[in-house]
Design a protein around this nucleic acid. Structure first.
Length: 139
DNA sequence: GCCAACGTTGGC
DNA sequence: GCCAACGTTGGC
C-alpha cells in the first residue's frame, strides 16, 4: 500500500472541482512529465493520496482515492501520456500549509519540500500519518 | 512579477 | 550522445 500526493493549481483544477465530481471521480489528466507519469503507473486502485493546492494557497486540502489504474490521457493523442482516475475522499478539517510541513522535522524529507516542481509524488507511510494528524484527516 | 530549478528539445 | 537554449513550474 503506497501513498501519494497530487498537486494542482486551484485556478486550473481545485479541490472543490474534485469534490463536485463525487464518487465518479475524474481523470488526473495533463501530466506531461515522465517521473510523474511513472508514479501514476505504479498506483493501484484503492490507494490514497493527498490533494495539494499549489501557487497562492500552498496547502494539503484533502485526501483522494485512486479509482482507476493508469490509462491513456484522453486529453491528448500522444501515447506517451497516461493518467489515473481519482475521487475526493475527505476534506481537511484544517489545511496543512507548506510552511507547516517545512517546519516539522518529521516532514523535512517530503518530496514536496525536496522537489517542489514534481506534480505527482510518493508520500511515505510516516508522512501520511503525520500530515493526516495535522489536518484532522482519517489516516 | 521575478527568478531559480528543472526538464525537454534540437542542433551538432 | 552531448549540451546549449528554451519553456514551464512554483515558491517567494
Amino acid at each position: 500500500m503506497s501513498f501519494w500526493l497530487f498537486k494542482s493549481e486551484p485556478s486550473t483544477w481545485s479541490w472543490q472541482d474534485q469534490v463536485a465530481e463525487g464518487d465518479a471521480g475524474e481523470e488526473w489528466d495533463g501530466v506531461r512529465n515522465y517521473q510523474a507519469r511513472n508514479f501514476m503507473r505504479e498506483m493501484k486502485v484503492g490507494e490514497r493520496g493527498f490533494f495539494y493546492h499549489s501557487q497562492k494557497e500552498r496547502a494539503v486540502v484533502g485526501t483522494v482515492e485512486v479509482i482507476a489504474a493508469a490509462h491513456p490521457d484522453s486529453k491528448t493523442d500522444d501515447p506517451r501520456w497516461e493518467c489515473v482516475d481519482i475521487k475526493a475522499v475527505q476534506a481537511a478539517k484544517r489545511p496543512v500549509t507548506l510552511d507547516e510541513i517545512k517546519d516539522d522535522p518529521r516532514l523535512a524529507d517530503m518530496v514536496l519540500v525536496k522537489n517542489s516542481r514534481l506534480s505527482v509524488q510518493p508520500v511515505t507511510a510516516e508522512e501520511w500519518r503525520v500530515v493526516c494528524e495535522l489536518a484532522g484527516l482519517d489516516p
